[in-house]
Design a protein around this nucleic acid. Structure first.
Length: 873
DNA sequence: CCAGTCACG
DNA sequence: ACGTACGTGACTGGT
């Protein structure tokens, strides 16, 4: 039996939601379209995101139902459906037909009952059911196999009600939702319930008694109160309300699960309706996808020899790789396009051509997407790539850093080119992954090159329009070449050193493990938070401090609080610490060392929301340093040539200096100009004491406040960090803002500007869009507000070090030094250098880094060097 | 494939 | 009253 994925939609409720959520739109015939439009958006979301195998839209039939027989006033007092909405139902029905989705209604029953009945049938069948509605009534159906998605304020935001979600939200089981309604009633359906009992009281009662029935069985034991009287007086009404609220799961439906099969839309019929209702944006997407692909079916020539007339300038180039790990994987072939002609060159052919090699290395202008990957991959085959004048990946990232992934298809689509297929469509995914036959590959790769060439003018125009072209063209684009060189160079790692550390760790871990089993009284998997939770909080009876969605939290800060209560905690913390070193940094790193004894990370240049880089396979931006045991890992990182050393230079407090500059706060600015330790200085100001009176604790608190400020502070966050009461944290923050009023003003302004413009900006005009600032959800909105405060700071710091890398690279060349930049770790640069260049570096590196931009506070750079990364401290 | 945990700035 | 610090990536266990 194959498992089906069944979506059941409450048609009426969704249409209502859409109608009231969207402004009154009409087409040029004066037909109202907002509900239909919202409904369409919802169907599109369901079809693309959920990908159901079966689907049904259920509607209410007529005015009266069996519920009215029991209770005449059921759903009484409702406003009549506005005609602007009711006239849209025929269109919605037509649309559902065009999507080839089943629809059903049953006289005397509501859509809820149809859905309830089918959902339970499907559940018994072992299928997965997703119910979609704007009405919380249906949440009572939630179960292990049934999820109920309820639309929130808008139409695309949803809450997924699973039993766990309901438990968390109400502390009740799904079925108890019915009892809750029985007690509290439901205004919108005119279900009376028990007067005077609202949600809070209903939940309290159900937690104690479980159900309405059980509550009344034990009502005599309840101590006298107003509430008790009301419950007794309205007994009948409570039971009737519960009955009214109960969704029928055995309605006499004449439709079966087999009738719901969904096999895709009738695309012509859907387009026709879009056309009639003038759904322009939806239409545009469809039209171009179909027409562009078909209209200009691209003639890609798969060549077995490279000729002179193929190679022009400018020309788009795409290097098609076997997978994302371009430092190791095979190159499958190259795509070329000058807009007129598009070619696919199998890599065996490309490798034989000196003509092509010269063209790649020469002055011809190339347009690429992900030039860093292309450069690094080609270089492994002695094919240097020069003169890249356009990089689609980077340009699109600057245009909007929220874009995800390196796949060209969605990027090109964003600029109106719909002809490229996704990597997944070509290769499949997971176990089904395979390289397609050459004709398919040729078409795909040639098409990518054509797309890059085609969108280039539009993308550059967009950036110029937003004054972001300089950032893209003079910062990110040249940086890609530098990063490519850094990655290709790699950093040498001594495997023997790591292996020796690994052996010692194995011994220690084994001893800790035995000790932990002893103290626990049984053997278990210490690495399983679930098993560990059972041991600590059930078997040993320690008090749970915090819980996660799935159970007890056993995170380090929780264990830290339990440390005095049991000897085992200390061993577990040690085990965790060493286990992390062993699995991630010893074993993980050893796997990445190549035949050249080096590791070649990949810096993701178009990934983070703030403009920072990230590092993968391996991540070299999180090598341990804070604890000595971990820091020793750095002893394995060495220079790659004899008599060379590693040289590290880091910005001191760059984010706070950026804050001083951007806010212009006089006190903060003068603090940095004085050059005193910033945390001590903050402590002096916040606590109103002299320099000598600042003790360790005060400095620690001030440091935490400074961090908090940069992150978009909240009293709760600070209280957690410092483990102090929230009130005290709030006090610190208030004092801080008294002393640094310019910072307070700046934070408020950042949020206000972001709300007005929809985005925040950094020093070099990097943008981050923050649509969540308009969210009606407090949490979502607060998060966006903190982001609005943090991103200009973190992002500007990222801008600065990126510019410093470019300046540094130029300076090293200019001075004729052999020193090579290897790594960037957000605020520090790591080089390898011949011993005899060190003296000059100690002058040049800080000078370049400190002067790459001029702020109204000085930038400060510290440096060090040594035989290993550990020694460069 | 997700959640929890922990490494870094 | 809401429930949180900002930005990442790798590994493990468990569905």
């Amino acid at each position: 039996m194959t498992k089906e994925k069944i979506v059941l939609i409450d048609g009426n409720s969704l249409a209502y939601r859409a109608f009231f959520a969207l402004p009154q739109l009409t087409n040029d015939q004066g037909v109202f379209t907002n509900a239909t439009y919202g409904f369409t958006m919802m169907l599109e979301r369901i079809v693309t995101d959920i990908k159901p195998t079966k689907m049904l839209v259920a509607f209410d039939a007529g005015k009266t139902t069996f519920r009215h027989e029991a209770y005449e006033a059921y759903k009484g007092g409702r406003d009549k459906t506005p005609s602007e909405l009711s006239e849209q139902f025929p269109y919605i029905r037509k649309l559902i037909d065009a999507y080839q989705i089943a629809q059903y209604e049953l006289p005397n029953y509501e859509a809820d009952d149809i859905i309830g009945t089918l959902a339970r049938q499907a559940e018994a069948h072992g299928d997965e059911v997703i119910i979609i509605s704007g009405d919380k009534d249906l949440t009572q159906l939630a179960s292990e196999h049934i999820t109920v998605q309820i639309t929130r304020k808008g139409i695309t935001d949803i809450d997924a009600y699973t039993p766990a979600f309901i438990e968390e939200k109400y502390g009740l089981t799904p079925l108890q939702i019915i009892d809750m309604k029985g007690l509290m009633g439901d205004k919108s359906d005119n279900i009376p319930g028990v007067p005077g009992i609202g949600e809070k009281t209903a939940i309290k009662l159900l937690k104690e008694y479980g159900s309405v029935e059980n509550l009344y069985e034990h009502i005599d034991d309840m101590k006298p109160s107003k509430m008790k009287e009301k419950l007794i007086d309205n007994r009948e009404q409570a039971f009737m309300s519960k009955e009214l609220a109960t969704i029928l799961v055995e309605a006499p439906i004449t439709i079966t699960l087999d009738d719901l099969a969904y096999e895709g839309e009738d695309s012509e019929a859907v387009t026709a309706i879009y056309d009639e209702l003038q759904f322009k944006t939806l239409l545009a997407k469809r039209d171009t996808t179909t027409t562009v692909v078909e209209a200009e079916a691209l003639d890609v020539q798969c060549v077995d020899e490279v000729t002179t007339q193929m190679l022009t300038s400018p020309m788009a180039l795409h290097v098609e790789l076997e997978n994302e790990r371009y430092h190791n994987c095979a190159i499958l072939g190259l795509g070329l396009s000058d807009g007129e002609n598009s070619y696919y060159i199998p890599f065996e052919v490309a490798q034989k051509s000196t003509l092509l090699a010269d063209w790649l290395a020469g002055d011809s202008v190339k347009y690429v997407s992900d030039s860093k990957a292309a450069r690094a991959a080609l270089l492994r085959f002695d094919l240097p790539l020069n003169h890249v004048a356009f990089d689609l990946l980077l340009a699109a990232y600057i245009d909007d850093p929220a874009r995800s992934g390196v796949d060209v298809a969605p990027l090109a689509e964003d600029y109106g080119y719909y002809g490229v297929q996704t990597t997944e469509a070509i290769y499949g995914k997971g176990a089904k992954w395979q390289v397609p036959e050459q004709s398919v590959l040729a078409q795909h790769v040639g098409r990518i090159a054509h797309a890059i060439y085609s969108v280039q003018p539009k993308v550059e125009a967009a950036l110029k329009d937003k004054e972001q072209f300089t950032l893209y063209n003079e910062l990110e684009l040249p940086l890609a070449a530098i990063l490519s060189a850094m990655e290709s160079e790699g950093i040498m790692v001594n495997a023997t050193t790591l292996e020796q550390m690994g052996e010692q760790l194995t011994t220690k871990l084994h001893a800790l493990e035995q000790e932990i089993y002893q103290l626990a009284g049984s053997e278990f998997n210490i690495n399983s938070p679930k098993q560990l939770g059972v041991i600590l909080f059930e078997k040993l009876g320690l008090p749970p401090v915090k819980k996660t969605k799935t159970g007890y939290s056993t995170a380090a800060d929780v264990l830290e609080k339990l440390r005095p209560q049991h000897e085992i905690i200390d061993y577990i913390l040690q085990y965790r610490q060493l286990g992390k070193l062993q699995s991630t940094y010893i074993e993980g790193l050893l796997k990445e060392i190549g035949e050249d004894h080096k590791v070649h990370t990949r810096f993701q240049q178009a990934l983070t929301a703030t403009g920072r880089l990230s590092s993968t396979d391996p991540n070299l931006q999180n090598i341990p340093i804070r604890l000595e045991e971990g820091r020793k890992i750095r002893q394995a990182f060495v220079a790659s040539e004899k008599d060379w050393v590693l040289f590290a230079a880091d910005y001191s407090q760059i984010e706070l200096r950026v804050l001083a500059h951007m806010s212009g706060d006089e006190n903060l600015v003068s603090a940095f100009k004085e050059g005193m330790d910033i945390h001590t200085r903050t402590a002096m100001d916040v606590f109103h004491v002299g320099r000598d009176a600042v003790d360790g604790n005060m400095r620690r608190a001030a440091k935490a406040v400074n961090f908090g400020i940069v992150y978009g502070i909240s009293d709760y966050g600070l209280s957690q960090n410092l483990d102090i009461p929230r009130k005290e944290a709030k006090n610190f923050i208030d004092k801080y803002f008294e002393v640094f009023p310019g910072v307070k003003q700046y934070m408020e302004d950042s949020v206000a500007i972001a709300k007005k413009d929809g985005y925040v900006s950094t020093l070099l005009n990097r943008r981050r869009y923050l649509p969540d600032l308009a969210s009606s959800n407090f949490n979502v909105r607060s998060f966006a507000e903190r982001t609005a405060m943090n991103t200009p700071i973190q992002g500007s710091a990222a801008d600065i070090i990126k510019k410093a890398m470019i300046d540094m690279n130029a300076r090293l060349q200019q001075e004729g030094l052999r020193t090579r930049l290897l790594l960037q770790v957000h605020d520090e640069l790591i080089f390898e250098a011949p011993q005899d260049e060190i003296e000059r570096l100690t002058k040049i590196v800080p000078e370049v880094m400190e002067n790459t931009v001029q702020l109204n506070v000085p930038l400060k750079v510290d440096y060090s060097y040594g035989k290993t990364w550990y020694d460069a401290k």
